[in-house]
């Protein structure tokens, strides 16, 4: 360039001569969108169907649509975090009980469901199955009521997916029996001849209490640690629930855990069966404009 010894004529020329100036100008330009599009989602109540957090643990309430959430309150008792309602506990006879029932509203996952969800993530189910029903007539008839933001409020990470090589799973819970799911996961083409889904026989061979990296067993699946991390992320579990997490994973729905372990298959089915069943949506209400 012939004019390179002249003074810069405008801002562009100044930036072209100063790499650090160009660096800062570029950094500024690329940061605007995130501030406008993302930051409001953290404080606009309408972005999550007016569901609000009531405490630092992540408990919820919703005054406009109370049916969406399972409202419970935490307090400290003898140095322990306890709640007025319990997600799961052991009664006198050693049976698992819960104060929650399907349709009561959004709650954190039980340890078994969370383990199933971890397996869902590990196997990459999300790449073929969405969990986000759109507000169209055909999707309503095929899959059910359109999905709401509150329904994935405890999902770290979200699993909405972007592709339907297989059908949407947002409300698959309760549509098929546990037995159907197990047979289907073992050999999908036995249940749906047209299916192109892979088979997952290894899920039935692994105890869910064991942790694998690849095919190597690296120890026990530490649900206590996972629930603790979840609580840091504002998914509300009480101290008792965290303490019982590994016991729950081992024994829930399994009267003889030492004879026959709960498998990864059981956990994955438990997760699939809870999808879409937590809230009972009211068809007469408009949840989203």
């Amino acid at each position: 360039m012939a004019d390179h010894n002249e003074q810069p004529k405008n801002l562009q020329e100044k930036l072209e001569r100063n790499i650090f100036g160009l660096f800062l100008a570029t950094a500024f330009m690329v940061s605007i969108a995130g501030i406008v599009e993302i930051v409001p989602l953290f404080y606009l109540k309408s972005a999550v169907d007016y569901t609000e957090r009531t405490d630092k643990w992540g408990n919820l309430k919703n005054e406009k649509f109370p049916e969406l959430v399972w409202e419970r309150h935490f307090h400290m008792e003898n140095g322990k975090l306890v709640a007025d309602k319990r997600l799961y506990y052991k009664d006198k006879n050693g049976n698992w009980k819960s104060d929650w029932k399907p349709g009561d509203g959004m709650r954190p996952y039980t340890p078994l469901e969370l383990a199933g969800r971890d397996i869902y993530e590990r196997e990459g189910c999300m790449y073929c199955h969405s969990q986000m029903i759109r507000p169209f007539r055909d999707e309503r008839e095929r899959y059910g009521h359109y999905s709401l933001a509150t329904e994935s409020i405890y999902d770290h990470p979200f699993q909405w997916g972007s592709k339907r090589t297989g059908p949407d799973l947002a409300r698959v819970g309760g549509k098929y029996s546990d037995e159907w799911h197990k047979l289907h996961l073992m050999r999908p083409q036995d249940m749906v001849p047209e299916s192109v889904m892979p088979a997952y026989p290894w899920l039935a061979e692994r105890c869910v209490t064991d942790q694998y990296v690849g095919r190597i067993k690296v120890g026990k699946r530490d649900m206590k640690a996972r629930l603790k991390v979840m609580r840091m992320l504002r998914v509300p579990y009480t101290d008792e629930e965290i303490a019982l997490a590994d016991d729950y994973l081992r024994t829930y729905g399994n009267p003889n855990p030492d004879k026959k372990c709960t498998t990864e298959l059981d956990a994955l089915v438990a997760y699939l069966q809870v999808l879409g069943t937590m809230t009972k949506l009211d068809d007469s209400k408009v949840y989203r404009e």
Binding site: E37, I38, L41, F42, A47, V48, D118, A149, T150, E151, S152, I153, Y154, D155, H156, P157, F158, W160, V213, V218, D222, A225, R226, V229, M230, M232, L233, V235
Partner: peptide, 20 residues
Amino acid sequence: LPVTWYKSYSLYSGVQDAMI
């Protein structure tokens, strides 16, 4: 937030996680 060296959970959830 990591649980172990091979497992972590996203800091965000739901709509915010989706948008980010």
